[in-house]
Structures are given as structure tokens and as C-alpha cells.
């Protein structure tokens, strides 16, 4: 008879990173259940699943948050927690958490309507960036160089379905040197950092950005660990950006961190999946 699983990995799309995590768990002889979110449901009241901890790798941010809430209700430890997933899934909530922790971020505003966003952009100054509250991989993130283009972009925003899409997050455009910095934090410890270079002004690896090892400095470590703590994330991909003077800002924190590009830059010398699993096991003790 097989041993009951103590850890579940929740996914609906098994990415290469998720596969590495499953392999790392198996190498450590951890009894693991791979749960497909697409067929999962949980009662409001009921018995806890056999596993005590869920490593939440669900790719849909809304689904990940609800699943985490449902499982925490049943007494399952969430890594990341529901609160962390929900905070990271919403750019405004992330900004609030980062600012509460005293972290430097680009000047940011929240507009209650697309029309109001034009006024907010005028206050922020051009060029500026318009971002959807929810989303990742740089989708629908737009740089607007002037009011004319901003007006057009906001007309498209107004035509998007769903009331949440009409709440507009606007931000100062940081004149970064063609790259940003991704820092991977696991259990409060920085595993390393990479520069992400791209011809596209959005430097997401999912958009084809190239990664290169970034030397760790005390400032990078301080910003990244403080940001991960601010959103309550055990596992975090913290994005930093440098301005023309070299000053660093925290852009966002990703709770479902993808690390293939990071590992590539480190030539496989940092075993992110292994470090994630080692951290998860500390949460079980």
C-alpha cells in the first residue's frame, strides 16, 4: 500500500518548472499528490484532504486564489498562502503592500474609470504605463507616450468586458537600461537574480526576454526580501527596475514564480525546484 501523500502540487497546466518540482519531491521520497485544478472542488465544511500542504502552482491567478482559500479553510497549509496569491494577483493590492513596507516603487495611481485615468496620467506625466489590474507576462501592459495615444488606449480599455477591467492602474514610465531584474526568493532567502533583456520594452521571459546573471548587492537582497515579506509570499519572483541614475524600484511580486529563464542564466548551478521543495518541507515540520 502506498504512503498517503503529505504534499499536493496543484496545477492545471504542467509547465517545465512544475515538472522539476514534482521530480524534486520524488527525489526526496516525499509522498506527493498531483492535483489537477480543473477537476478539483472542495466543500465549505468537511474533512481535510490527506495531504497537509499544498504547493499551489495553478497558473490561473483567480483560480489559484480561490483554491488556496478553500484549502486553507480545510486546514491545509498553502504555499503560497491565499493572502499572498491574492495580493500578488492584483497590481494595486501589491502596490499597497509594497508601500506599506516602505519600499520604493514608481509613482503610481489608480483611476476609477478610463476617463479618470486621463487625469491621472496627466498628473503622473508622460511617457507613462497603463496596466491591467490582473494579468501577467506583460499582457495588455501599454506604454503611452502622450495624451493622444493615451486617449485611444483608454477607449480600448473602456471597451473591455468586466467591471474590473475598467479600473485603471497607471504608473510612471521608468527609463530602464533595456532590462529589468528578476530576483527569486524562497523562504525569505534570495537564491539569485537575473537581468532580463528584451527588444520589447516589456522584459518578461514569457515574451522572449533573454536572461543573464545579475550580481547580487545588499540593496537588491534587501529590496527583494522585504518585498516578498510585504506580500506574505514564501516563494516569490520579485521584479526590480533601475532608473537612469541606477536607483532601484520594486515593480511587482509574482507568487507563482517561473524559473526556467533564471536557471538557464545560472547554467543549472542553482536548483530552484530543489530549494522550493526543501522550503516546503520545513513548513511541514
Amino acid at each position: 500500500m502506498s504512503e498517503p501523500a503529505s504534499v499536493a502540487v496543484l496545477t492545471s497546466r504542467l509547465r517545465v518548472d512544475d515538472k522539476r518540482i514534482l521530480e524534486a519531491l520524488e527525489r526526496r521520497n516525499v509522498a506527493v499528490a498531483h492535483v489537477d485544478t480543473r477537476t478539483a472542488w472542495w466543500p465549505l465544511d468537511g474533512a481535510a484532504p490527506e495531504w497537509r500542504l499544498v504547493l499551489n502552482r495553478e497558473i490561473g491567478q483567480i483560480r489559484a486564489g480561490y483554491a488556496a482559500r478553500a484549502l486553507e479553510r480545510l486546514g491545509v497549509i498553502g504555499v503560497n498562502s491565499a493572502a499572498a496569491i491574492e495580493t500578488c494577483a492584483d497590481k494595486w493590492h501589491t502596490s499597497l503592500a509594497l508601500r506599506a513596507a516602505g519600499l520604493p516603487t514608481p509613482r503610481t495611481a489608480l483611476a476609477a474609470t478610463p476617463e479618470a485615468a486621463l487625469s491621472a496620467l496627466a498628473a503622473i506625466g508622460y511617457p507613462a504605463v497603463v496596466k491591467p489590474l490582473v494579468g501577467s507576462w506583460g499582457r495588455l501592459v501599454t506604454t503611452v507616450p502622450d495624451p493622444d495615444l493615451a486617449r485611444t488606449v483608454l477607449e480600448y480599455v473602456a471597451a473591455l468586458p468586466g467591471p474590473q477591467a475598467h479600473i485603471v492602474y497607471v504608473q510612471e514610465y521608468v527609463r530602464k537600461p533595456g532590462r529589468d531584474i528578476r530576483v527569486v526568493v524562497v523562504g525569505g532567502e534570495v537564491l539569485g537574480a537575473v537581468y532580463r533583456y528584451s527588444a520589447d520594452w516589456r522584459t518578461n521571459v514569457a515574451r522572449g526576454a533573454r536572461t543573464e546573471r545579475c550580481p547580487l548587492t545588499d540593496r537588491i537582497i534587501e529590496l527583494a526580501t522585504t518585498a516578498a515579506t510585504a506580500v506574505g509570499a514564501d516563494l516569490a519572483g520579485v521584479d526590480l527596475v533601475e532608473d537612469e541614475t541606477g536607483r532601484l524600484y520594486v515593480l511587482e511580486v509574482n507568487s507563482g514564480v517561473e524559473f526556467a529563464g533564471f536557471e538557464q542564466a545560472y547554467d543549472g548551478s542553482v536548483d530552484v525546484a530543489g530549494r522550493i521543495v526543501d522550503h516546503v518541507l520545513t513548513r511541514l515540520t
Binding site: S12, R13, I59, G60, Q61, I62, R63, A89, V134, G135, S136, W137, R139, A206, G237, N254, S255, G256, V257, E258
Partner: peptide, 11 residues
């Protein structure tokens, strides 16, 4: 065929 990317997919 893999599912199409949804609006909230990502990190």
C-alpha cells in the same frame, strides 16, 4: 490541444 491562454494566466 492545450488549453488557450486565459486572461489571468501567468506568474
Amino acid at each position: 490541444p492545450a488549453p488557450e491562454v486565459e486572461e489571468d494566466w501567468g506568474e
